[in-house]
């Protein structure tokens, strides 16, 4: 009962990014508890990349295969995980849309507490102790969870490690379940490969853009980063209908923690700061040198974004070769 189960996500036979980071978190917890890490993957068939999971920290990889798992199938996953939950000290998922959907279902099924959006997980006596931002990052809560807690860990909170574990793959039969919800499919918009919540670089725009069409400037800058950058936005411009709400960063939007965050023409309302303050490096570009955003930014440029952003795009393009 000292082992940790990490539920990995896949889509169309490819592991979703964030698996190594989740395994790193599971590894640390398992070592503190004196146990091993099991990864589990639900899929319709073969999943590429399972052989690399040992290196990332999985002692064992359990695969559950069947047509029922061609799409995300929470009912099937919950039923199967519930049958093996007794083997584990804790169960972890990524704090993604899918992982956060899944964690509380499993917790409720097995009668365990659930820790959501966790940035640090450790053993504290009989409990599993989790650290998590609350009030949109305006405060940090430490919570002790009894039983076999189900914990959704933020993808950016742990760095992948090279653990060199066995990673032996074993098949597990799915448990029988009642299909209550049927996922009919995933639509991926063209040309918008990176999600704000997942991107290594986020470039957010606010009212200072002046007009919705000027988001094109930010898209060009994102493109210069070559597919690892996404465009975000402040609440004001989302509410004004300049860009879809999926781009909103902040207390009522997405909380992001990219390595590099650009706030362009964003004054820095407290709701926005809450959503991006854990970014590793923050750059602010604003014509108002007194804007609050400069108080949280690591680097600031005071100036007209219509001059600065194109120059920056050009410079990044060159730097990236």
């Amino acid at each position: 009962m000292a082992n940790v189960l990490a539920i990995l996500e896949q889509r169309d036979g490819a592991l979703r990014k964030g698996a190594p980071e989740l395994l790193a978190a599971a590894r640390q917890l398992a070592e503190a508890a004196g146990g091993a890490v099991d990864a589990i993957v639900f899929a319709a068939g073969e999943v590429a990349g399972l052989d690399g999971l040992g290196a990332a920290g999985a002692d064992r990889v359990r695969t559950v295969t069947g047509d029922a798992f061609a799409q995300y199938n929470p009912d099937g996953i919950v039923a199967t995980v519930a049958t093996i939950a007794g083997e584990y000290r804790a169960i972890v998922t990524s704090a993604t849309a899918t992982g956060k959907d899944l964690a509380p279902r499993i917790a409720a099924r097995i009668g365990a507490p659930c820790g959501m959006d966790v940035t640090q997980v450790e053993i504290a006596g009989d409990a599993v102790r989790v650290t998590r931002p609350v009030y949109a990052g305006k405060a940090i809560q430490v919570l002790d969870l009894a039983g076999t807690p189900v914990i959704a860990v933020r993808p950016s909170a742990y760095a992948a490690t090279s653990a060199g574990k066995a990673g032996a793959v074993e098949a597990l039969a799915p448990a029988s379940f009642t299909q209550r919800l049927t996922v009919t499919g995933v639509a991926e918009p063209e040309g918008e490969a990176v999600d704000v919540a997942e991107a290594r670089v986020v470039i957010s725009g606010g009212r200072g853009l002046g007009d919705p069409k000027h988001f094109a400037l930010l898209e060009e800058l994102a493109a210069a980063f070559g597919g690892e950058a996404a465009v975000g936005a402040s609440r004001a411009v989302v509410d004004a209908g300049w860009i879809g709400h999926g781009h909103q960063v902040g207390q009522t939007g997405k909380t992001v923690a990219p390595e590099l965050y650009f706030a362009v023409g964003i004054s820095g309302a407290i709701q926005h700061l809450a959503g991006m303050r854990t970014a590793k490096t923050i750059v602010a570009i604003n014509r108002d040198k007194d804007a609050p955003i400069f108080k949280v930014a690591d680097y600031g440029i005071v100036g007209d974004l219509f001059e600065v952003v194109p120059a920056l795009t050009e410079a990044v393009r060159k730097a990236k070769g």
Partner: peptide, 15 residues
């Protein structure tokens, strides 16, 4: 943090 400069001229310093 710090202000690296003003306007487009500050881009090289930022980079």
């Amino acid at each position: 943090g710090r202000i690296v400069g003003e306007g487009a001229a500050a881009v090289p310093a930022l980079l």
